[in-house]
Each structure stands twice: as C-alpha cells, then as structure tokens.
C-alpha cells in the first residue's frame, strides 16, 4: 500500500533569484496493491514531481510517503519492489550503449543467478509482451529506435523485476491507439497479480479504463479525487468538468465546459478540512467561486 499524507514539495526556483515554487501542496491519497490510481492534471501541476517523490528520486519538503508502512527510502531493496517508467524515454538511455543494456543492468543488479539462456528467454518474452519484435529492437542503439519503441522497452524492463509498485509517467502518450490498448491490457494483467500502479496521464479518454481511483491535480493541489466512476461520472469541481469536456473526440465538436454555479465544497457546509467528502470515496475542494465563503488558495 502506497500512502501519501500531506506531501508538499517546494523548489527554490531560478527565476528572478530568490523565488520559490510550491510544485506539490499537501497532497494525500492511497494506492492499494492491485489498484491503479490515475493522476491527472494540467502541464506543470506537479504530477511528475509526485512520481519522483514516490520513487525517492527527490525528497518531499514536508509530509510523509510510505510504502507498506515504511518510509520511502531509495536503495537496492527498494528499487527491487518499486520502479518508474518516465515521460521522456530518451533521458533513460545512455546514447553510447545499446538500448538493451537496460536489461543487462537489471540482470546484474537483481537476477545475477539466472542462467544466460533463461535470461534471454525472459527478456524476449517481456519484449513480446509490449508488442515489440525482439529481432527488430534488440541489439540497437537508442537513436536507432522510434520514440514508442524506446518507451515500450522501458516497460519491458520493469516487467523483468518482481515489482510491487510501478510509477508510470505518461507511458502511453507516444503510442498509437492500438498499441496503447495492448500496453494497458498488459498492465491490467499485472494489476490482477497484485501490482499497484500510479498512472500519470493526461489522456482522459482512457481514464476510466483501468483506474479504480482518480486524483485530479491543479497547481500542485488536489481539486477532486475518489472512485473513478464517481469522479468521471459526476465531476463536481469546475476544473474537472472543464478537463473532461475538453477531451478531443473524433467527429465531434471540440468544446469547452459550461461554468458551474455552486461550489460542492461550500454547499456541503464548508468543513475545516481541505477536501469535502460529498459521497463515499468522492472528495472535492473549494471551487473558489465568487459566492464561496472562502477561496481556495
């Protein structure tokens, strides 16, 4: 179980010297084993920063992140259980080595005892699982592969570990519709075997496909979260509504959402917490409407 409790991250930003940016502001949510939580929100809203904190690649300024009750602490043992696949696959490869060196590194670090032949079979299977032809992609340098091919090799690499938790940052964003479905179905299979996934995405058309829970982020803060069916089926925050309405669909006009009249947070009696539970497992923040008792900072 991954648990984030009021996690905050502040960067001392370079702009104009002394300023600072709060990229993530008191974010809390949980992801149980076998559960996929999708994290959605606009560019710069703090999604990748959350992913990097979960992976221990950057430290939270305050708040706590725990996995199965233990604080996130990077190290070999931790990375045996938790891995990430990133938004920008090129940055994960060293251009002077062949791309499949990422597999050799996994073997050296985590499966040194596996015989050559068995390892080769495992790699081949993982590569086929992400819909790649081993003959076409193994033994090549990163610049010799297409963007989608590199991204899928990283997913295959994660498959070779006995993962408990995967942080997937926009892993399907560079894939065509058909390949994307194959990769998602693969994740569904892993989920059924108990893998927990933090699925960072901006692709809302598939938002309901796998996610049990959805967290909507804006400017580093959660505006709405809970059961995916509830968040997507009955979005209460104006920002969530705008996002959902703005999904481009084939042969339909591309619309912007209609404004919302009432703030679900304040209508519910303005509790003292940051989020108001409007129904079981459906939380919403103040919408900052003109009539709100207070505005969300």
């Amino acid at each position: 179980m991954l648990t984030l409790d009021r996690v905050t991250k502040t960067f001392r930003a370079g702009a104009f010297g002394g300023g600072s940016t709060t990229a993530v502001d008191r974010v809390s949510f949980e992801a149980a084993p076998g559960e996929l939580v999708s994290l959605i929100g606009e560019s710069g809203s703090g999604k990748s920063t959350i992913g990097r904190m979960v992976l221990g690649l950057t430290r939270a300024s305050s708040g706590s992140l725990t996995l199965d009750g233990e604080q996130v602490r990077p190290g070999k043992d931790f990375y045996r259980r938790v891995q990430g696949v990133f938004q920008d696959p090129f940055s994960c490869y060293n251009p002077v080595f062949k791309a499949d060196r990422v597999f050799a590194l996994v073997r050296r670090a985590y499966h040194p005892g596996v015989p050559d032949k068995e390892w080769a079979d495992r790699v081949e299977k993982a590569v086929r699982d992400v819909r790649l032809d081993p003959g076409q992609v193994l033994g090549r340098y990163p610049h010799q592969l297409s963007g989608g091919q590199l991204q899928r090799l990283l997913i295959a690499r994660a498959l070779l570990l006995d993962l408990r938790f995967l942080v997937a940052d926009e892993i399907t964003s560079m894939l065509d519709a058909s390949t994307r479905i194959d990769v998602l179905n693969l994740l569904a299979g892993l989920k059924e075997r108990g893998l927990g996934v933090l699925y960072i995405t901006h692709d809302l058309s598939l938002g309901t496909y796998l996610a049990e829970r959805t967290v909507v982020l804006r400017n580093g803060r959660v505006v709405e979260r809970g059961d995916t069916q509830k968040v997507f089926g009955n979005p209460l925050h104006p920002y969530t509504r705008t996002l959902l309405a703005a999904v481009p669909r084939l042969n339909e006009p591309w619309t912007s959402a209609e404004p919302v009249e009432v703030c679900a947070f304040h209508e519910g009696g303005a509790p003292d917490t940051d989020l108001y539970e409007t129904e079981p497992d459906h939380f919403v923040a103040c919408a900052g409407l003109p009539d709100c008792g207070r505005t969300s900072a």
């Binding site: 519709a177 994307r180 479905i181 179905n185 809302l204 496909y209």
Partner: peptide, 22 residues
C-alpha cells in the same frame, strides 16, 4: 479502419469489456 476502430469510447472499462488492439 482498424486503427479508428481501436479508439476507445470515453468511459470504457477493462472490467466490463477489455478492448483489443490490432
């Protein structure tokens, strides 16, 4: 045709009916 056919309907769920690629 198949590429367009594999575009998901918004709201599709794996649990109800897994989609399939080509």
């Amino acid at each position: 045709k198949m590429l367009i056919g594999s575009l998901p309907q918004v709201g599709a769920r794996y649990k109800d009916k897994p989609l399939s690629g080509i």
